[in-house]
Design a protein around this nucleic acid. Structure first.
Lengths: 140, 140
DNA sequence: CGAATAACGTTAGTCGCACTAACGTTAGCC
DNA sequence: GGCTAACGTTAGTGCGACTAACGTTATTCG
């Protein structure tokens, strides 16, 4: 049986999710916040639609997450002068700090997650997953 | 650097989940049904509590899932004469057929999921994930 | 030009899965 | 006989993925 049991992936993800949720709960963050802040930090400001594509977060969910981030002062929405349909979303200095904080937490969690694996194995796993995901992204 | 990005695991799982959900939607099944039926089929009847431990499904969710399976005639609940607190849950012949049907679907999905990987790589991925999960199961 | 079409942001709501809290019932232990 | 633990059940929370519908603004094309 050389199949990848799909439940195995789900279970691994469930563990990962639990670790992340626990790690974020302490600082009042959720997964979407991290994904958005780090995307904005890494790839710069963007319209909400573009941001949604970048982070694979649905526009409908994005609105709420951005509301929360904006209320906390981590993010700024401003109308795009070139296109009145668009909001340009940019990270604030406080948001940058927040991103760094969350990234640090995530890094620790990743180490905990792969504690049973050697660095080489972790890299192997990462590569395999990356290819798996890339394949399904392309053919979506 | 050579960390396993936790979002990668989530994304891979999301793809897997989507494939499974799509595959099951057509036959009106959900993940819990498959997990329960195949566990009952493979390891025999059990009390709900034991079944929950076996499948890692919470007792509270199990009740609903078993209600659905029982209503469809795939499963039978009978009081345990040896312990009045317990229900003995057993799969029916129809349930066995259903399990086979779902297993077939899952197998096809697994192939689709790992289409980008060679059999050897799939096995490698499976092994790594298994160890990752086992580690967190033990230390939970 | 004007009308159709498409992209944008927003609101509201569904679904699957993991997880917590509380309750009454039944078993086992000392 | 009383305490504790396990059992099944109901109710509800939270996150993440996903759909439907609406009004607004751009773009394209006959």
């Amino acid at each position: 049986m050389d199949h990848l049991p799909s439940w195995l992936l789900s279970q691994a993800a469930a563990h990962a999710h639990r670790l992340v949720a626990d790690g974020f709960a302490g600082v009042g963050a959720k997964g979407y916040h991290y994904r958005l802040l780090s995307s904005l930090d890494a790839d710069g400001p963007a319209s909400q639609a573009a941001l949604g594509r970048r982070t694979r977060i649905y526009l409908s969910d994005l609105v709420g997450a951005l509301n929360e981030l904006e209320a906390a002062g981590y993010v700024r929405r401003s109308p795009d002068p070139a296109d009145k349909r668009r909001n340009v979303v940019a990270v604030t200095p406080a948001g940058r700090d927040r991103a760094a904080e969350l990234t640090e937490r995530v890094t620790a969690i990743q180490e905990e997650l792969t504690a049973a694996l050697s660095p080489a194995e972790t890299e192997q796993l990462t590569g395999l997953l990356r290819r798996l995901v890339a394949h399904h992204d392309r053919t979506e």
